[in-house]
């Protein structure tokens, strides 16, 4: 294949990855920003979303589009509920102490993974896409559903931005993020904000998973990579900056694809990994973070 179409394909693939990564990472970014903790179980919430989508696809009769729509609503709600429960039962009692939270969320990771292994099994299972469409370009074919993923992720992110920038919920979250004490003084129920943010973060991961699972299959160990990539994206973007997270997701998603067109695949991964390190070495606050 000529280089032009090759690059085009890499960029299109990169955009799909970036869209899903942006969703997942924005969830982690919110939790990081407001609660100031690293949620190691974030990837498992992603995995749960995908696994739950498989169960929905088995239980909901009718066309795949219907099951998909149900999954898109039900799975994030379920995962958000679980996250809120974990927040109330564990994280709150730890007073969101960063180090204790790491251990607690690692414990949560183990529990969720085992639950998936026991109840769902070790196999990778496919979930049918809501529609089958194939795009034939002059040089290669591409999945029409992937275009939909990019669009849907964009829509959810736009909704998230509206929620944070324009609604009272967003105002309360930002107030809590900036100054917890003052927020309490103004009558904000900080506990509820924390539980809500933690749940929202998990729900975003679950939405991302429901969108990607028709392409990727649900598997009980699928949470590892989204966690790592999200974490990288959040830090590269600049802590607490949702805009930074989005830009970083786009950069990392697309550059990963483009670099891989020039080098041997694994070598490209090594170079991309070192590039991330170097970006941070020379810009420790991230792309959009305020200098400490």
């Amino acid at each position: 294949m000529d280089f032009g179409p090759f690059l085009l394909l890499a960029v299109m693939e990169g955009l799909v990855g970036a869209a899903v990564l942006a969703l997942t990472a924005s969830g982690l970014s919110l939790v990081f920003g407001v609660l100031r903790v690293v949620n190691v179980a974030h990837g498992e919430f992603f995995m749960l979303g995908a696994v739950a989508a498989w169960f929905v696809s088995q239980w909901v009769p009718g066309p795949p589009a219907l099951a998909f729509a149900v999954a898109l609503v039900a799975c994030p709600l379920l995962v958000a509920g679980l996250a809120a429960l974990a927040d109330r039962l564990v994280l709150k009692r730890l007073a969101y102490e960063p180090e204790a939270t790491i251990i607690a969320t690692i414990g949560l990771l183990y529990i969720l993974q085992q639950a998936a292994l026991t109840l769902y099994g070790p196999e990778a299972r496919p979930v049918p896409p809501p529609f089958e469409a194939r795009l034939q370009l002059p040089w290669f074919g591409w999945s029409g559903y992937k275009l939909f993923v990019i669009g849907a992720a964009g829509a959810v992110l736009a909704g998230l931005w509206l929620l944070l920038a324009r609604s009272r919920i967003g105002l309360v979250m930002r107030a809590t993020q900036i100054d917890r004490e003052t927020a309490t003084a103004f009558g904000i129920d900080v506990d509820r904000v924390y539980a809500g943010t933690f749940a929202l973060g998990a729900a975003l991961a679950a939405i991302a998973a429901v969108l990607i699972v028709p392409i990727q299959q649900a598997h009980y160990l699928m949470g590892g990579d989204p966690l790592l990539l999200s974490f990288i994206v959040v830090v590269i973007g600049g802590l607490g900056s949702l805009r930074g997270t989005l830009v970083a997701a786009l950069l990392i998603g697309v550059s990963d694809g483009v670099i891989s067109t020039f080098f041997e695949p694994t070598l490209a991964k090594i170079l991309a990994t070192l590039l991330v390190a170097l970006v941070l070495v020379f810009r420790p606050q991230g792309l959009f973070g305020a200098r400490a």
Binding site: P5, L9, A10, G14, F140, Q216, T261
Partner: peptide, 9 residues
């Protein structure tokens, strides 16, 4: 790797 299309060219 979880996505392969980019390697097919």
């Amino acid at each position: 790797e979880t996505s392969f299309t980019r390697y097919f060219p």
